[in-house]
Amino acid sequence: MSEDQSTTTSSRRRVLEIDALTLQFGGLTALDDVTFHIEEGEILGLIGPNGAGKTTCFNAITGIYRPTRGDIRFEGTSIAGHKRFQITQLGVARTFQNIRLFRSMTALENVLVGADAKHSTGMASALFRLPKHRREEREGHDRAMELLAFMGLQKRADELAANLSYGDQRRLEIARAMATEPKLICLDEPAAGFNPAEKAQLMELIRRVRDQGYTVLLIEHDMKLVMGVTDRIVVLEFGRKIAEGTPAEIRDNPAVIAAYLGVDEEDAS
């Protein structure tokens, strides 16, 4: 039923297709036959109660876990079983629920590491300052400063990541992910720990990220937020997909309301 809805919403190109994805750890099934896709240029929300398998799903997409069954296709080619750095180089980037920056590197260097994903400077180029090194360094630096400015962090460029405020660290993580020039950017609860005003700002920011041409996959707890920013929503519960559709459809879906026991329903209305 949900399949129909999604196919009707648009006929845009599918960036990512999750196909009957199943993940088992020992006897535990973390994801059970989950199927959904993300279209180019949309913001897809992935929601569900705690332990529903959202982050596990992220981990499978970014290559941390290998699917037990099923397939993950990025722009039509299967990436299940690819190495993590290869998936990133193909064009999938992510942030982390609990911030994981390179703490003793500066903000700028953090973003540069992301930009380096598309570079190939090796020992020889660096050692002899070959044109390739100089070109990539200049491009990477320009792009990184641009992204820091976009996040409002250019003044903090030379500050150690560890010394940034909590909100700046969250934004820096997004900048670092964007620097890898991904087609799909996966944000894992980017608003965690924010107050309502900051959350609203962040949602605005996410929209602007999308407007720059990125496709966004967003995990978020706060229903209000998700409803406000996403084009479509996929709902997981106990590792299964229980609903998929536009925010309005999800809001009225009885299965979703049941899963959230009405608590987040209040938030959403």
Partner: peptide, 18 residues
């Protein structure tokens, strides 16, 4: 930078394309 990122957090470095 790749060396330092690896030292700081190997898993994240890998996920950032290193």
């Amino acid at each position: 930078r790749a060396w330092e990122a690896t030292r700081e957090d190997e898993d994240v470095a890998e996920l950032m394309g290193v």
